[in-house]
């Protein structure tokens, strides 16, 4: 019955050792799927490379659907897993800033680390920027603490908020993602005809 670390089936220290291996799996997939290239990531937003959309949304729908099946077979207790808390104003602001940072820098934290591992200098600079950004945040934190903690909704899921069963959400996301895959494939084909020099 999962999560096995929470239910005491493995020790806390073993959980940390496993964390390294889980991280390795994540890093491996990121690099192998092409997230170690800033041009691949930025390409999403210019329509010439949708690898990010494909990997990201496939992962989301596989996990969503997988969680529901794991719960149904009695292998995972969904009430014990961590749910991201929601702080409306600060999370909206943070996401906007992150979006701008992503298109300027060409990475997100996970992908930059995977790219540093294979020797990308731009990724290293992005990672240094991350440290500076978080340091700056810590410095201005006393000024924005109130904003940071405002609009707290708790650890809410979509189901808590709307009353719609998680199955419907998983189904809805899957349908949207599948449609997006087919649409982006045709956009990509059209845009790539115009860009000659980029090797895909």
């Amino acid at each position: 019955m999962g999560p096995i670390a929470i239910n005491g089936l493995i020790s806390a220290n073993l959980n940390l050792v496993i964390a390294v291996f889980l991280g390795m799996g994540f890093g491996f997939v990121l690099e192998a799927s092409g997230f170690s290239s800033a041009r691949n990531i930025a390409g999403t937003f210019y329509g010439y490379n949708f690898v990010v959309v494909r990997v990201f949304f496939t992962a989301v729908i596989v996990t969503m659907v997988g969680l529901l099946y794991l719960s149904y077979f009695g292998w995972l207790n969904l009430s014990q897993i961590f749910i991201l808390p929601t702080y409306l104003p600060s999370m909206i602001t943070g996401s906007i800033i992150m979006g701008v940072g992503m298109i300027i820098g060409g990475f997100c934290p996970g992908t930059s680390f995977a790219a540093v591992a294979i020797g990308k200098i731009d990724a290293l600079f992005f990672a240094i920027g991350l440290f500076i950004g978080i340091f700056l945040f810590a410095e201005v934190y006393p000024l924005i603490e109130k904003f940071y903690l405002s609009g707290y909704l708790g650890h809410v899921t979509l189901t808590d908020l709307t009353g719609i069963k998680p199955g419907w959400w998983a189904f809805g996301f899957t349908v949207i993602a599948l449609i997006a895959f087919w649409v982006t494939a045709s956009i990509e084909k059209k845009v790539r005809k115009k860009i000659k020099e980029y090797k895909f």
Binding site: M64, L68, S71
Partner: peptide, 8 residues
């Protein structure tokens, strides 16, 4: 299928 299964 997830529409027809329920959370345990």
């Amino acid at each position: 299928g997830t529409l027809f299964i329920h959370e345990r």
